[in-house]
Design a protein around this nucleic acid. Sequence first.
DNA 1: GTAAGCAGTTTCCTAAAGGTAAGCAGGATG
DNA 2: CATCCTGCTTACCTTTAGGAAACTGCTTAC
Lengths: 120, 120
Amino acid sequence: MSKTEDEKNNHEECQKLMLPVRDALDVISGKWKILILISLMQGNSRFREIERSIPRITSKVLSNELKTLEEHKLIKRTVYDDYPVRIEYSLTEYASTLEKVVNELQIWGINHRKKILEEG
Amino acid sequence: MSKTEDEKNNHEECQKLMLPVRDALDVISGKWKILILISLMQGNSRFREIERSIPRITSKVLSNELKTLEEHKLIKRTVYDDYPVRIEYSLTEYASTLEKVVNELQIWGINHRKKILEEG
DNA sequence: GTAAGCAGTTTCCTAAAGGTAAGCAGGATG
DNA sequence: CATCCTGCTTACCTTTAGGAAACTGCTTAC
């Protein structure tokens, strides 16, 4: 096999691996989305509750992020017609497929912090 | 336990989970970093080779991302004093700790794409 | 001797993400 | 009746990421 053919094959293989990662990043990238999911995983469900559980997030950002997470079918917004109306956010079943990703990210983050502190 | 106390505990627990994720995101967030790591995992090592393997990346962006990946100890830049000088990038051992994260992201991305296509 | 490859850099620009601060409608609380 | 809570929205502004294009110095291949 020629060198250029070799490179072509390599690049095709690369693409095959990169495409899904791009798809995934489209959905969960950004400073806040995963943190919001974690908050929901921890049992928070009301807007202000979630807001308070995430340091330095603002209403505006939270509101926007919740909307796009809903569009991506990761969370559900439910309006309960109690008096007064109660609004609750919850994870969908689909969101549970993300648990492994979040978990691995957490584990890696913990070790990374350890590494940084060790080295100074 | 009072309700506010309960919330306080919940928030502390949240923080404990969110902090490492933030740390991780600091290192690997952005449109290109993981793709670059994948390219290296696939055996690419020269600047132009990596550049060609990642569709639509530009020299400038690649150059910057390689620098920050090096700062974070995920890759190594080696200058071989051949004639002409050859420069190679490679993954560090530390980078291998990220493999699980990348893998889970890939798996999730594949399923997500499937889901989207099914639903239209 | 000119074109092409290597490993980038430089400058300039745009778009998107995110932050600040304030406000609003409805209900509850003292 | 004043203030606080809820679940947001609005307008504005700053910062950052990222893209386009050109260019550099060096080397090799035709």
